[in-house]
């Protein structure tokens, strides 16, 4: 059985012309075009390039939304098993387009195999979505790139999509953690690693310890008595019954709730949605996680100008750094737009 492939290439490799044709909108051709011919030859009997999408690099990058919509429609219509994009070598706009095609296809559950130079911005930005073979920085490396991509496609077919590590298969790391069932259970692997460490023989850690990014400290508040202070928490404090259904673990969202007119939080009005700690203390008195009562006192006493009348909340339990970062950026923007001077972030 052969799988059905759609190939994405730019105007140049699509034989439409060079820079002068870079504004070419999406065109759909039957069968392989340009480098697709060599790919098809290398994949005979295993895969068939049924269609080729050709798009000008400038068109794609200047009309990204439109281009993505067009490509999504084509893919939904053709329903290929796999997409091959490029190779784009070190061509920046072409790499960005191939990467973006990867993102669109990922959204549809269609895998993508591409080829790029390791410094192509399309790799850096979109590496999560595609298996990208490393190529040289110019099209002079086409003769090496095509067999390398065909080899990865073949492996993908033979292993029914369950590819091994980047080093084993010859693609550049996607920056993803991928689950698989190992031959030996974890405890046995741990003992083997312990023995290697004791004997001084080489071993490969299964997880490299993470490195977190840093933000420059912000200037201090000069005058508290005129400052608006906002409360933010990862402790999952929400109005009773969790109206927005924030997940008890691995949160996909945060909540924005009014505390306007509230003197404090209490058992009747608020609770925690967090599944990662004993909720009894917080449910009895939610001020233990989100100190509204004390901030109201300080507001009344004039120590702070104002307690911001909305608080922001999510569940930190098992929530990925990527989600947390996105929530943080959005919450910061809301606070900034509302003229908030500083935030108190509480964690459980």
């Amino acid at each position: 059985m052969t799988i059905r492939v759609v190939h994405y290439i730019n105007q140049f490799f699509g034989q439409k012309g060079g820079e002068e044709a870079a504004n070419l909108p999406i065109e759909l051709a039957d069968g392989p075009v340009g480098p697709g011919a060599a790919l098809q030859a290398a994949l005979t009997g295993k895969a068939e390039i049924v269609k080729t999408i050709i798009c000008g690099d400038s068109y794609f990058n200047e009309n990204e939304g439109l281009a993505c919509m067009g490509i999504r429609e084509i893919l939904q219509d053709i329903k290929p098993d796999l997409i091959i994009a490029g190779p784009a070598f070190n061509a920046g706009r072409y790499g960005m387009a191939c990467g973006k095609v990867g993102e669109v296809a990922h959204g549809l559950g269609i895998p993508v195999i591409s080829g790029m130079y390791n410094e192509n911005p399309g790799y850096e930005l979109y590496r999560n979505f595609s298996y990208i073979v490393e190529t040289t920085n110019s099209a002079a490396g086409m003769r090496q790139a095509i067999p390398a991509m065909a080899k990865l496609v073949t492996a993908w077919i033979e292993k029914e999509g369950k590819l091994g590590t980047p080093a084993e298969e010859g693609y550049m790391p996607r920056g993803l953690r991928v689950n698989f069932f190992a031959e030996e259970r974890g405890a046995k692997r741990a003992v083997n690693m312990l023995i290697a460490k004791l004997e001084g023989t080489p071993f490969q850690t299964e997880y490299e310890m993470p490195v977190f990014d840093r933000v420059a400290p912000q200037p201090a508040i000069l005058d508290l008595s005129t400052a608006t202070i906002a409360l933010v928490t990862s402790g999952g404090v929400v109005p009773k019954c969790n109206p927005n259904r924030i997940e008890s673990s691995s949160a996909s969202k945060y909540g924005e709730y009014s505390i306007g007119g509230l003197e404090c939080l209490c058992e009747a009005t608020h609770e925690t949605a967090h599944g990662g700690y004993d909720p009894v203390a917080c449910n009895k008195d939610p001020n233990r996680v989100l100190p509204v009562d004390v901030l109201r006192d300080l507001e009344r006493e004039g120590r702070i100008g104002k307690l911001h009348d909305k608080f922001y909340t999510t569940v930190g339990n098992g929530t990925s750094v990527a989600n947390s970062k996105a929530f943080g950026a959005e919450i910061a923007m809301h606070l900034k737009n509302a003229g908030v001077s500083a935030a108190i972030l509480t964690s459980t």
Partner: peptide
């Protein structure tokens, strides 16, 4: 500290950072 907070105030306990039942 590991995740990069700049101004940090140590709290009471995980389930009740600002209280003690």
């Amino acid at each position: 500290l590991t995740v990069g907070a700049n101004r940090i105030v140590p709290a009471v306990a995980i389930p009740h950072p600002l209280g003690n039942p």
